[in-house]
Write a protein that binds this DNA or RNA. Structure first.
Length: 382
RNA sequence: CCGGGAGAAGCUAAAUGGUUAGGCAGAGGACUGUAAAUCCUCGAUUAGUAGGUUCGACUCCUACCUCCCGGACCA
């Protein structure tokens, strides 16, 4: 693969890349590039993470980048995951959660053995100078900025937060510096923190961001968020609102079981969730189902695909690319049921490896154990 | 630590001490070749916890817990 091919692989299906010049420079140098993406330890990964985010991890692997999956156990504690129980968080991080990440990459056709995991708590224990970097980031960022960046933790604005949660953004930035990362990956919701990271990069002295002897700001790669299939909060959407923007805002939430889909969902559950999806006939402005085609199906079916329907509903119809699907949908040549049926079948087939992986007793046990813990925490908090 | 306020379903919210309205979300059904919209149906053996007063407590009292707001302490 030449530089251009590697760059294109890294860039495809991203929302944005901050620092493309640096990225190009690094690729041209031929030197090893360190990537990282942090995961909070929560329950199962919804497919926005397992498919969209992990596909980018695989792209980076394929482009010859050294990828690292950062298990952010301390961050999860700060963000009250698993009832804020750090011991449970650590256990899940080493068990079910890591296994889910491996299964994701397996499903996407990658080699789980090539993934490098780093657990935050272990990293901090062996790298005490992390904390000086943490202070340096903190010292060079304003309080309002930290507060603004904190919405990524899934909190509403104005909601009360403890002081510890303010440590989260500088920690995340310091993680990147301390581990000598050149590419920080995340969903577009991570943007504010990554910008803080890049803005403070020049001020850092202890773990100066370097690339083979040259000072360099880490690059940020952001993937789009897979929208929830639920109907928008307001419908019909007023003329002056940007439908696409709204669609991205309605991201999937794990806490809402109906808005989130998981790779290990059984076929009936997948089908049901797709069928429940909001999908207006001929509406292409706000249509999460079509957006899923754009984000999941077309990147994998580069030469297009066809939908086989009963004769009374039009018979076989094929699409060469997303625009083609959109225009046919807008004209009413394709019905919501047609695309829903196809999408359900497609996802059921696509997630088969993950489903089978977690049917193996050892892994199933891990999942069950995690569900059990989550259930207990839920019961306790009521 | 002191003072003040609050705690009712997933969220929100009314009811002079008389046996928990309503709204949103959710579930089921009808109608659409999906979903949405609309229409029907359902949902707390129960009010932060534990006691007490009373014929009767969400409502009054006491203690404790949690959260919010002030103040004190500033070595």
């Amino acid at each position: 693969m030449n530089t251009e091919e590697r760059l294109n692989l890294i860039k495809r299906n991203t929302e944005e890349i901050i620092g493309e010049d640096e990225l190009r420079f690094m690729l041209e140098s031929g030197q090893e590039i360190n990537h990282y993406i942090g995961f909070e330890i929560s329950g199962k990964l919804h497919i926005g993470q397992a498919v969209i985010v992990m596909q980018k991890v695989k792209d980076l692997m394929d482009a010859g980048v050294k990828v690292h999956l950062f298990l952010a156990d301390w961050h999860s504690y700060l963000n009250d995951k698993f009832g804020g129980n750090l011991e449970i968080i650590k256990e899940i991080a080493d068990g079910a959660f890591k296994e889910i990440l491996k299964a994701s990459i397996l499903t996407l056709g990658g080699d789980p053995e090539k993934l490098t995991f780093i657990k935050a708590s272990e990293y901090y224990a062996t790298h005490p100078d992390f904390w000086l970097t943490f202070l340096e980031v903190s010292k060079n960022t304003s309080l309002p900025r930290i507060e603004r960046s904190i919405s990524i933790m899934g909190r509403e604005e104005g909601q009360t937060k403890d002081f510890g949660s303010l440590a989260y953004p500088p920690m995340q930035a310091a993680d990147i510096f301390a581990m000598n990362i050149q590419i920080a990956q995340g969903g577009i919701d991570q943007r504010k923190i990554h910008v803080i990271m890049r803005d403070t990069a020049d001020k850092i002295k202890t773990n100066m961001p370097m690339f083979h002897g040259k000072r360099m700001k880490p690059v940020a790669i952001h993937t789009p968020l897979l929208p929830s299939l639920a109907k928008p909060a307001i419908w019909p959407i007023p003329e002056d609102m940007n439908k696409r923007e709204l669609l991205n805002k309605g991201k999937m939430s794990k806490s809402d079981p109906n808005s989130a889909m998981f790779m290990m969902d059984d076929p009936e559950a997948i089908r049901k969730k797709i069928m429940k999806g909001f999908c207006m006939e001929k509406e292409i402005g706000y249509n999460p189902i079509l957006r899923w085609f754009e984000m999941i199906v077309f990147p994998r079916e580069k030469s297009g695909f066809k939908i086989v329907r009963p004769e009374e509903h039009g018979g076989i119809i094929s699409f060469k690319d997303f625009k083609d699907l959109e225009s046919k949908f807008e004209k009413g040549d394709v019905h919501p049921i047609d695309v829903k049926n196809f999408l359900a079948d497609y996802l059921i087939e696509m997630f088969k490896p993950a489903r089978e992986h977690f049917q193996k007793p050892a892994y199933k046990k891990m999942l069950d154990r995690m569900e059990e813990i989550l259930g207990k925490i839920k019961a306790k908090s009521h």
